[in-house]
Amino acid sequence: MPLQTRWFIKSAFVYLAVAMALGIGLASGMVVQLPLWLAYSSPVFFHLIMVGWVTQMIFGVIFWMFPIVTRARPRGSERLAWATYILLNAGLLLRVLCEPLNAMNPRGVWGWGLVVSAVLQWLAAVIFIYNSWYRIKERYRGD
């Protein structure tokens, strides 16, 4: 399993655990008054699962298991794989920080944090697709 895949998968498990913990916090709003930052974290909960856990796990497994490009360069660009990992996680973590703070203080600096988060995650998806597209093919049968 390549190093990038290990980072993707281990990070995915961390996000899953954090999302479940956040889920407990959000559910406890049924019985206690939640602090505002927690009450505004429902979208963060869903995106920790869908981006942090599901999509990140899929990205890692694709980088590992899809047909190789060539023996010399089996998984395409390793730098682009790292770029995907860094952009996706930086974008998601920025969202985790900025989304509740922006909900409490709309139109402030936290709003610009959400814009940057959006761009980072979008770039991660674009780079991932670019680096994986030519591996959607029949098994490699030599040059």
């Binding site: 969202r95 922006n102 814009v115 995650q121 998806a125 674009v126």
Partner: peptide, 18 residues
């Protein structure tokens, strides 16, 4: 769909901020 979904998601998230 990943590209379309992330593009729309990015627009919606940015719209929340600005």
């Amino acid at each position: 769909y990943l590209l379309a979904g992330f593009t729309m998601g990015a627009l919606l998230l940015a719209h929340k901020g600005q």
